[in-house]
């Protein structure tokens, strides 16, 4: 176990624990945007900055990437930390004035108005969608293109992707609801990724419920009985309830 102090409070954590988790263990809340438990930390949004004191030197670092060390002294609420975090949020708010999660953070931090010219983007470039698509789904459909101020998340050639399975994990992990997905009868349309996918209909109720490509992808990854992929979740639930009913009656 490693012992460190955060805002003067002592905490012991296992080796390999990030400062963010150590702080959470103490009940200290550190805001995050580009962090998610399920994927590797990235350290890009800089909203989770903390101050780490090392001898006479102190420096800002992202708590989501910084590993706890023995004897480490961390400040999560120093004026330097708070000023930096606030400016990060203000910069992101100027970029995406309509993003609810950013607006929320800004309110909590007491940011009144943005001092920069407003843009009308929706994506804060946290890269969660990219990491989920690569690390969890293992599809690697989207990624960062260009660099600097022109950086964007995109599909290759900004066009329909052959490898997108339409699972929508990117959209569900996005903190700013920037990834638009809609369904129209037998199609799932991933507007942001210029991609349209055919849906499969449920063997029981006939409703279109899952992109055919996602099913193929799942079949490759997981070994399960074939018919489990043929029925929509609703029908599965129903049939499962039925079965449970049977079991119960049988038991009596």
């Amino acid at each position: 176990m490693l012992n460190l102090t955060i805002d003067g409070k002592k905490v012991s954590v296992e080796k390999g624990t990030t400062v963010l988790h150590a702080a959470r263990k103490l009940g200290i809340e550190i805001p995050t945007l580009c962090y998610h438990e399920g994927v590797s930390p990235y350290g890009a949004c800089r909203v989770c900055l903390v101050e780490v004191v090392k001898g006479i030197k102190t420096g800002l670092t992202t708590s989501c990437t910084c590993l706890a060390e023995e004897g480490m002294e961390v400040k999560s609420d120093s004026p330097r930390v708070l000023e930096s975090r606030k400016l990060m949020v203000e910069l992101l708010l100027a970029r995406c004035p309509e993003a609810e999660k950013v607006k929320d953070l800004a309110r909590k931090m007491g940011i009144e108005g943005v001092r920069f010219k407003r843009e009308d983007k929706e994506c804060i470039l946290c890269g969660l969608c990219v990491r989920v698509c690569q690390e969890i789904i293992e599809a690697s459909v989207i990624g960062f293109i260009n660099r600097g101020a022109n950086r964007e998340v995109e599909t290759p050639f900004q066009a329909q992707s052959d490898v997108c399975i339409g699972c929508g994990a990117c959209s569900s992990v996005c903190p700013t609801e920037a990834i638009k997905i809609k369904e129209m009868f037998d199609k799932r349309i991933l507007e942001t990724w210029h991609t349209e996918l055919e849906l499969k209909s449920c063997k029981i109720c006939g409703r279109y419920f899952v992109p055919k490509k996602e099913l193929e992808h799942l079949k490759e990854k997981i070994e399960l009985p074939e018919d489990i992929f043929e029925i929509c979740t609703d029908c599965k639930r129903k049939s499962l309830t039925g079965k449970i009913g049977e079991i119960k009656t049988g038991a009596i």
Binding site: G43, A44, C45, S84, L91, L92, A94, A149, R151
Partner: peptide
């Protein structure tokens, strides 16, 4: 630096632009 920033982190990408 705006042209040459990789664009990963907020302060460098957004801050320099501003």
């Amino acid at each position: 630096t705006k042209d040459e920033s990789c664009g990963k982190c907020t302060p460098c990408r957004e801050g320099i632009k501003r």
